[in-house]
């Protein structure tokens, strides 16, 4: 048991360190590179790594290292904000539906069913294609396709919590319904959300990058990892690795940070329960 806990903590620590490093790199980008993310070096399109450009330049003569760093701001920011929105909206809906039940609950669950009848990336793709790209739209799209899962998760928790003796006790002692919901039901129903949300952030980053890769995300010349990989696609066949490998590697490491964190939290929750 202690061994499981130790493995869980090592996962949590590793994940957190990775994320902290990425966040720091994103914040300190101006100190780590002399080039702006959209600054063009007309003398050196597709320059190989080394010299004036640490990781070379892309087709447009923009510095890859600088773009990779600045992109972290956008990729992390969009993912975290979108998941936060999904958590808040989904949890509130699930809370209300689960506590009161009735027709509102039925309607909500049918809507959730429709959403979950499609693979999530396909859904995000369709919504993004129909509503158009752009950073704000992407936040909305990613929040929208993730919210139903939280609604379902929180609703299930609330339905079991509302039958527990301490809720009954609060009710009979005359506490107002909203007070019970806010003070007693909500905090306890969020337990599974805490484990899912980090994993979901990683998934949101992959979705954002995937949409941008297909040209549905952040418009050119915005620095975003998926869009950078997309621009470097043609270079790969010619053996030029530096335009697409670094942004993907950063994306992988960042998502892995979230995965390690989520897995560690899950493992710890399991170990404590046993």
């Amino acid at each position: 048991m202690t061994k499981d806990l130790r493995f869980a903590s090592s996962l949590i620590v590793t994940g957190s360190v990775i994320l902290a490093v990425v966040v720091l790199a994103a914040l300190l980008a101006p100190l780590l590179t002399g080039w702006g993310p959209e600054e063009i070096d007309p003398a050196a399109p597709l320059a190989a790594p080394g010299g004036a450009h640490l990781l070379g330049t892309d087709l447009n003569g923009m510095d890859v290292w600088s773009r990779v760093l600045y992109a972290a701001r956008l990729d992390l920011g969009v993912a975290v904000v979108a998941v936060a929105l999904a958590v808040v909206a989904g949890s509130l809906l699930g809370l209300v539906a689960g506590y009161w039940g009735g027709w509102a609950d039925d309607v909500l669950m049918r809507v959730v069913d429709v959403f979950q009848a499609f693979p999530t990336f396909i859904l995000a793709l369709a919504v993004a294609a129909l509503f158009g790209g752009g950073t704000l739209n992407l936040v909305a799209v990613i929040a929208l396709v993730n919210a139903p899962a939280y609604a379902r998760l929180v609703r299930a928790e609330v339905r079991s919590i509302r039958e527990l003796p301490y809720i009954e006790a609060a009710r009979t002692s005359g506490a107002p319904p909203w007070g019970i919901l806010w003070r007693h039901v909500l905090p306890n129903s969020l337990t599974p959300v805490r484990v899912i949300a980090p994993l979901n952030c990683g998934w949101a980053m992959l979705t954002l990058a995937g949409l941008s890769f297909l040209g549905l995300g952040v418009p050119v010349p915005g620095a975003e990892w998926g869009a950078m990989i997309s621009l470097g696609t043609a270079d790969v066949v010619a053996g030029r690795w530096w335009t697409s490998v670094p942004p993907g590697l950063f994306l992988l490491v960042c998502v892995l940070g979230f995965s390690l964190l989520g897995e560690g939290l899950q493992e710890r929750a399991d170990a404590v329960r046993r």
Binding site: A209, I229, G232, V236, V245, G248, L251, L252, S259
Partner: peptide, 10 residues
């Protein structure tokens, strides 16, 4: 955690 499109390119 792998972006599949990037893995394909690699």
């Amino acid at each position: 955690s792998l972006p599949e499109f990037w893995l394909g390119l690699v």
